Simulated scan of single mutants.
Amino acid sequence: MKDSLFTSIMNANPQPAHLQKQPRASYALDYLLNEAQSLLSRLHQVKPFSMTMPMVQGAAVSDRAMKEVSELLEHGKNAVFKSISAFINTVQNARTQQHDVGELQTRFSLLRLRYNSILDQLDIFADVLAQRSEHGVGIWLSGLDVLAEDGLIACNDLVNNPALMVYIDRGHGAAIRRAATKLPGGDDNPVAVIQVPRERMVGSGVASSLIHEVGHQAVESLHVSAQIRKLLHSKDFL
């Protein structure tokens, strides 16, 4: 009874002719093609910070910091753009060639992960730069950039110090994302990003929190941590 009812319903509502003729694998290819083209369209909307961040000149980060961040994001964006374009060509050719749809799905998943890592990197630096447009706050932060760079002056003759950027956030302690550490996606961070909590932005708390974090960057730039780790693992130390 149920089978006959189902058959009568299907006969009363037949699939369109173009769907009846289309093989199941073609549905998967259409899906992957549509998703890849969507990623490409979204990628076109990712603009350089120089075109999206309103700030007065006095509140801007250093030219070196902006240049290195922009180059990082543009390089990653272009690489993903080429990878997605190549994937789209592969999917389009898969209609006439033998391709494992499962492998294409895996390849697309990896592309999307890389695409998301570019957006994660964008958000990290966008959080820093967006504050530069706040009245009063932006110029204050620009001054803290200069103070942070002054904290590394003693290392100038020994290493090539990275550019630094400072921003404020909630919390009870300052933190630093050191230069040359890994960003989402595995790229090296080109600049040191220092977070200072809002509650520390008063009195001696500003300098003590900021310079403390600058010290972490100095230790890393001078490779002190690596030397200590090597010493601790050596037999001579034991």
Rank of each mutant, 00 (worst) to 15 (best):
V56I: 07
A59M: 03
A60R: 05
A65N: 09
M66P: 07
M66N: 11
K67Y: 08
E68T: 00
V69Q: 04
E71W: 07
E71A: 02
E74L: 01
E74H: 02
E74K: 02
H75V: 01
A79Y: 09
V80N: 14
V80E: 12
F81I: 05
A86G: 06
A86I: 01
A86V: 02
F87H: 02
T90Y: 00
N93I: 09
A94G: 10
H99F: 11
H99V: 01
V101P: 00
V101D: 02
E103R: 09
L104V: 00
T106F: 04
S109F: 15
L111S: 03
R112F: 02
L113Y: 02
R114I: 12
Y115P: 10
N116F: 04
N116G: 02
S117R: 11
I118H: 08
I118M: 08
I118W: 07
L119G: 13
L122M: 06
L122S: 04
L122Q: 09
D123N: 08
A130D: 10
R132F: 03
R132I: 00
S133V: 06
S133G: 12
E134I: 01
H135V: 00
G138F: 10
W140E: 09
W140A: 04
L141S: 10
G143S: 07
L144Y: 13
L144W: 14
D145L: 13
V146Y: 15
L147G: 04
A148H: 02
E149R: 12
G151V: 02
G151R: 10
G151I: 07
L152D: 04
I153F: 09
N156G: 07
P162Y: 15
M165N: 06
M165S: 09
V166I: 14
D169P: 08
H172A: 15
G173L: 07
A174Q: 05
A175Y: 12
A175D: 12
A175I: 09
I176G: 07
R177N: 14
R177W: 12
A179E: 13
A179W: 14
A180E: 14
A180L: 13
T181W: 01
L183D: 08
P184D: 11
G185I: 13
P190V: 06
V191H: 07
V191K: 05
